[in-house]
Deep mutational scan, measured.
Amino acid sequence: MGFKLLSKLLVYLTASIMAIASPLAFSVDSSGEYPTVSEIPVGEVRLYQIADGVWSHIATQSFDGAVYPSNGLIVRDGDELLLIDTAWGAKNTAALLAEIEKQIGLPVTRAVSTHFHDDRVGGVDVLRAAGVATYASPSTRRLAEVEGNEIPTHSLEGLSSSGDAVRFGPVELFYPGAAHSTDNLIVYVPSASVLYGGCAIYELSRTSAGNVADADLAEWPTSIERIQQHYPEAQFVIPGHGLPGGLDLLKHTTNVVKAHTNRSVVE
């Protein structure tokens, strides 16, 4: 069995187990497998329904001669939608809004960016022009300005110390501490036991640490421990890039980060 097929099978099995364990909360999309990078042309966006009122959005972007996937989250909030992270750029984010209108038909009224990198804030200006209120932590807003990236308009308070959590509509926002970046936030959907790890969490097929220019490698494993301790009931975990899975993604990420750190020390 090929690795790609095995990865998709694991996603399907995880979703099936969740649907059985929580039949009222989960209505997993039966329309197909989780979209992969090879299936999404740059400039297009796919939506994948995880649970009743919960979707991931998947886009792709060219970077350094390669094409990478990027995940975000959409959560229903009454007759409105909360968006977590842009679709990595203005063109993708405009396509995301169009796809949401086509498939869901509810307005996106608020959006949260989970850290300051372009795959999370690139497209904020498109959201703002569409009347979406954009939010991020003060740290993310400051770092985005320093980096020359787009800056969300509103500040999220109460997320300055490791372990801080605040309720934001249908989700809980959690600051686990520094990891992929010093400002990275985690998003949890309690009604569906869905954990969105953003770039602080890796997919299972990833074996290298990737972009760690703004990471705190020493603190990252401790931050992941905080996530595990705060959300032990999480059933569906979405990484910032690639295929979702279960809580095993947290341990896998820790292993990859520690291996990278150990290699760096040896070198």
Rank of each mutant, 00 (worst) to 15 (best):
R120F: 01
G131P: 05
P69N: 15
A94V: 14
I201V: 14
P69F: 15
L47A: 03
A66M: 14
D85L: 00
D248K: 10
K8V: 10
D118Q: 07
L250N: 03
P138S: 08
V126N: 05
E80Q: 13
G105Q: 11
V28G: 10
G32T: 07
S181P: 03
V256L: 10
G245L: 02
E147R: 09
V146K: 13
A259N: 11
A98P: 06
G131A: 07
A19Y: 11
T14V: 05
D64V: 08
L217F: 06
R206N: 15
G123H: 04
R167P: 12
Y231A: 01
S161T: 12
S264E: 11
V126D: 04
G89V: 04
G89A: 02
G148T: 07
E147H: 15
Y68D: 05
H154I: 12
P152Y: 00
D52G: 10
D183H: 03
T134V: 05
A129N: 15
L96A: 00
N184V: 00
E172L: 05
D164V: 10
T60E: 07
V257L: 15
N71E: 00
A25M: 12
V237F: 05
E267T: 05
I20G: 15
S193V: 08
L127K: 03
L159Y: 05
V126H: 07
D52M: 09
A25H: 11
P176Q: 02
S161N: 14
E101D: 13
F3M: 13
H252V: 02
I224G: 01
F236V: 10
L143A: 09
L10Q: 11
V112R: 04
S205I: 07
H230S: 12
G210K: 06
V189C: 03
L81R: 03
G89Q: 00
E145L: 13
S191E: 13
D118I: 05
L159M: 08
R141F: 03
Y231V: 03
P23G: 09
E101A: 14
D85K: 00
P190Q: 11
S137I: 07
R142Y: 10
E101Q: 13
F174M: 14
L6A: 13
A144Q: 04
I40Y: 15
D64P: 06
T253I: 06
S38P: 08
Y196F: 14
A66H: 13
D125E: 12
S22A: 12
R141V: 08
T60N: 14
V146R: 13
S70I: 00
P170E: 07
E219L: 08
G240D: 05
L127A: 03
A25N: 14
A144P: 05
